[in-house]
Design a protein around this nucleic acid. Structure first.
Lengths: 112, 112
DNA sequence: GGTGTATACTATGTTATACGAGGTATCGAC
DNA sequence: GTCGATACCTCGTATAACATAGTATACACC
């Protein structure tokens, strides 16, 4: 499904945190991960993912490390930090609250 | 609840369409409506609502009419148009799809 | 009759988000 | 030795929501 770009705003960071909470990942792989894990609903481009990773790292929510041992190509593997997990929990609560509010409003409109 | 501003992006137009689908309303009242109908979860300011109403009207999804008969003060009552209802239905589908995708991703992270 | 408050609309500048588009480099296969 | 896949990086753009400020009317109260 193709979304209005604006509908995704504010949710993308949460995607990445959630994906990294499940397992460490490098950027290129995250693009595939998100697509797969969301059942094809989300497709973030590299131009979205990489800048976001730098930002999340700068905030201390994830930590990147160059993986030169196992990898064929140089790549940066990101892991979620304890602070990142707290941030994810908080965002998850906000998300659920948003869903609750939207449901209330859309339900009203449906039977109007 | 206080939201990250960005999380609301793309949803606000849908709020307004949904609220107007239930009953015609003027701008000032919409601010109160949305707060009440969402159980206090959403609080949009006038600086958000009015410019949005102009935009929705320009797109032909709602139609405003100056109400000088019943009102004490001049005020503009907006009604949703047939095209607006189709737009709302489409946005509702997108919203449900977004919720589905987010649920898949957040669920995975929760038991990771 | 003047002051304050609630109603009601209008207009503008700011911030930051997601994305497209373009670029670099390495590896394996044919 | 060329092609495609992997992997990363960067910049410019559109636009959304909001804060802020401004205008104007009705009404209550002293």
């Amino acid at each position: 499904m193709r979304f209005d770009r604006e509908l995704l705003k504010g949710t993308t960071e949460t995607f990445l945190l959630a994906a990294l909470a499940e397992s460490p990942c490098h950027g290129y792989q995250l693009v595939e991960q998100l697509k797969r894990r969301s059942d094809g609903i989300f497709e973030l481009g590299e131009g979205t993912v990489y800048p976001l990773l730098y930002k999340l790292e700068a905030k201390g929510w994830i930590k990147g490390q160059w993986d030169s041992d196992t990898a064929l190509r140089r790549r940066r593997v990101y892991r979620i930090t304890p602070r990142g997990r707290r941030q994810l929990a908080q965002r998850t609560r906000q998300w659920e609250e948003l869903v609750r509010g939207m449901t209330l409003i859309l339900k009203g409109a449906a039977h109007a």
